[in-house]
Amino acid sequence: MNALVESGPAILFYVFAAIALVGAVGVVTLRNPIYGALCLLATFLSIAALFLLRHAEFVAIVQIFVYGGGIMVLFLFVIMLVNLHRLRESRLFNGPLPVVIVLAVLLLGLFGWVFVQVHFDPADAHPALFTSFVDQQGQLHEQAGNTQAVAWALYTRNLLPFEIASIFLLVAMIGAVVLGRRQ
C-alpha cells in the first residue's frame, strides 16, 4: 500500500500519457472531424493533468480554459458551420500510406536513439521555487502559490513580451474578423 502511494505520481503519469497518446492517434486517424475534436479534447485535458505533475498549476488551468474551453468550442463551431457531407474524404491520407509509416518509424527511431543516449539526472527540483517570489522590497514570499509566482515573473521581468502578446491577440482578432466577413 505504501509503495502504491509512493509511486502514485508515476501511475498518474502513465495513465494520462496513455490517454493523451490514444487521443492524439484518434485525431489523426478518425474520419469524422467531430470525433477527432473530442479526441483532441481528451488529449488537452490529460496534458493539463501532466502539467500538474510538474508543479505548473497555473499553466494547467490556463490549458483547460484556453484549449479545453476556447479553442475546442471554436473547432466544434467551425465543424458545424461547414457542411460535414462535403468533408467526407474518399482517401483519408495524402500519398502512399506505407511511405508515411516508414518515415514516421524512421523519425521515431532516430530521436528515440538520441533519447536513450541523453540522460537527465533525476530533477533535484525545488517545488517551493514555483510557489514563491521576491517582491520589490526584495522580500521573499514563501508558499505564495503558483499563480502569484507566475504573475510576479510575468509582470516584472517579462512585461514587454506580455504587451507584445496583447498586441498579437488584437491583430489576430482583427484578422479573423476580416477573414470571416462576407464580401
Binding site: 479553442i71 473547432f75 467551425v78 458551420l81 507566475v150 513580451p161 479573423a176 470571416g180
Partner: peptide, 23 residues
C-alpha cells in the same frame, strides 16, 4: 512556465486565424 503561457496565447491566435482562413 511563462514561455508556455505565451505559446498558448500564440496557439489561440493561430486557431482563430486558421479557422477564419478555413471559413
Amino acid at each position: 512556465q511563462i514561455f508556455a503561457i505565451f505559446t498558448i496565447t500564440v496557439a489561440a491566435g493561430e486557431a482563430a486565424v486558421g479557422l477564419g482562413i478555413l471559413i
